[in-house]
Design a protein around this nucleic acid. Structure first.
Lengths: 128, 128
DNA sequence: TGCAAACGATTACATGTGTAATAGATTACA
DNA sequence: TGTAATCTATTACACATGTAATCGTTTGCA
């Protein structure tokens, strides 16, 4: 509803952790990112703070620490990021993007099968 | 070969024009973007200059004006952007990305057919 | 042959981003 | 009960980005 905030690259990393499980304290997010991102804890705190300010996260206080949770819908953010990627790289046209990923990314036979089924559904499911 | 430069959102818009046709002078690029981007000519000059500095464009001089042309491969930039998008939004996993686009973007029956054929090739064509 | 137009280069500037240290408040343990 | 650990908030800072105006030079037309 209210306009989605812009979420930067580093911020996505943090959001993913909280979309995966929430609420979490800053310390838990730091733990979850251990290894994945070589960030100082202070860096993660900064990102959490910025995401609060942008309205992408909310928190409840628990003693002196915050319990963070997403305030924006993951699917909506994915749609926005997908659209933005299509516009930037493929002039908004989904077809060459799909061809690109099918051609250049590794897919197992099972995954290929699943995609075929999905395409079948799409064809029946009406134009939209 | 030499590491691809980072190309920003606005810069992509300019690169697309030159990948589409090159070389072009700044004035031609401005024309090509007329309507598409509501940019002052000066803005486009700035972007061309930055792309030169980054090594994404080269130019030859023609009188007092430059003829710009891409210095980086479009396909390579697309691969990089695709990978970066996958990493950011789908934890690097192509399958949910493909599902997302198939589900959320409009595709004609012909396009769906083409994708099916492409998936067939992929299945035969060996894992890589 | 002089002036206006056009060109690229330089400068501008607010905001975003990556990356983090520090300061001030609080809390938990000894 | 005091002190060390831990929180969030504040501050830092260089570089990227979007967006453009201006400057100095060249050039083409009158």
């Amino acid at each position: 509803m209210s306009t989605l905030p812009e979420i930067s690259d580093a911020e996505w990393t943090v959001m993913q952790v909280l979309w995966e499980r929430s609420p979490q304290t800053a310390a838990e997010v730091v733990d979850a990112l251990d290894g994945h991102a070589a960030w100082a804890p202070a860096t993660i705190k900064t990102l959490l703070g910025r995401l609060i300010r942008k309205g992408a996260l909310t928190y409840t206080e628990d003693g002196n620490r915050y319990c963070y949770r997403p305030a924006v819908d993951r699917a909506a953010c994915i749609r926005r990021a997908g659209r933005s990627f299509l516009d930037r790289v493929f002039a908004g046209d989904p077809m060459p993007a799909l061809e690109h990923f099918v051609r250049s990314e590794p897919l197992s036979d099972d995954q290929i099968e699943a995609l075929r089924r999905l395409l079948d559904e799409r064809r029946e499911g009406g134009t939209r």
